[in-house]
């Protein structure tokens, strides 16, 4: 750890300010709390909101995991992880199970999170109503008065245009029957996971908003009676680990365009392969034992 930095880069007063916003967010699940977002040594769009939330949550004993699209080794994830290694000196890990704080962009890990974990989402646009109502004064009023008809107009438009609800990322959810919330650009496949044991925190740096979903909060994906929410997902198993219940990314294998679908959650995939599972295109890691099979 580089001692020229305050722990986790931000000064204590800023962290306290962010924690107050976080506490308010936890007290009012799904409500967007304004906060005085600081300049961070990285451009907006690189998770400055998430980074500030993580900075305000980290303690020296924490183990940090950072993922982007489910993977720990992408540029964005690597640079954020390095940033906290350098400024906070915390332990880092790729293993979901070992991490106490997980910062994420675009995914929720496949493995169930536990009560002693915090997941921090990077959020580009926190306002789910923005698409149809650009006036901030009006959207705030709509939230205050629970006027959410407009959210369904968006879904209506989807069905009218595509024959089904085509929204597949940042699919709007209703939190504890009160606030409509943008879950950040995670695939809708991940929406059902949001009813979880871990604390979920959301940070939007450019937009200066923080919101939260406390453990075991009710999270309902919006839909119509005759077009119910469907999480979608793969029709095949992971090419490497054969997982049938995991969100898959398609990879192009060679110049002839051969494709393979593999878990977007690289840690989950590794864990399964270590346990002996082998997909169609995978190579056995070790002999499948009785209890792993």
């Amino acid at each position: 750890m580089n001692s020229e930095y305050n722990f986790a880069y931000l000064d204590e007063q800023t962290k306290r300010m962010i924690r107050r916003a976080l506490l308010k967010g936890v007290a009012i699940p799904g409500y967007q709390v304004p906060f005085a977002s600081r300049e961070m040594p990285m451009p907006y769009g690189w998770g400055t909101g998430g980074v500030q939330v993580t900075a305000a949550c980290l303690t020296p004993d924490d183990t940090l995991k950072v993922i982007d699209q489910g993977a720990d080794d992408t540029t964005n994830a690597v640079s954020i992880r390095k940033f906290f290694e350098k400024t906070a000196g915390v332990a880092v890990s790729d293993e979901t199970a070992k991490a106490t704080v997980i910062q994420t962009r675009h995914r929720i890990p496949e493995r169930d999170l536990s009560e002693n974990q915090i997941i921090v989402y990077q959020v580009p646009i926190p306002e789910p109503l923005r698409f149809l109502e650009p006036r901030e004064t009006e959207t705030r009023k709509m939230h205050a008065l629970e006027e959410y008809g407009l959210m369904h107009v968006k879904l209506y438009e989807d069905i009218a245009r595509h024959g089904h609800i085509a929204t597949s990322y940042a699919y709007p959810v209703m939190i504890e029957g009160r606030y409509v919330m943008d879950p950040s650009p995670i695939p809708k496949f991940d929406n059902p996971k949001m009813e979880m044991a871990a604390l979920q925190l959301f940070g939007a740096g450019r937009e200066q908003r923080i919101y939260a979903v406390p453990p075991y909060t009710k999270v309902v994906s919006l839909d119509f009676e005759d077009y119910p929410f469907e999480k979608g997902g793969a029709t095949q198993g992971c090419g490497l680990c054969d997982a049938q219940d995991s969100y898959l990314d398609e990879m192009i294998m060679d110049d002839s365009g051969a494709r393979m679908s593999v878990c977007s959650d690289s840690d989950y995939c590794r864990e399964r392969r270590d346990a002996g599972y082998v997909g169609e295109m995978g190579v056995p890691q070790k002999t499948v034992t009785e209890d792993a099979a």
């Binding site: 006027e147 008809g149 107009v153 209506y156 119509f224």
Partner: peptide, 21 residues
């Protein structure tokens, strides 16, 4: 920016109609 149908439907959805058909 919303279709004619969406424009007409908005008030219905605002008062709780949740059946697309």
């Amino acid at each position: 920016s919303v279709s004619a149908g969406g424009n007409v439907g908005e008030r219905l959805m605002a008062v709780g109609e949740r059946h697309y058909g």
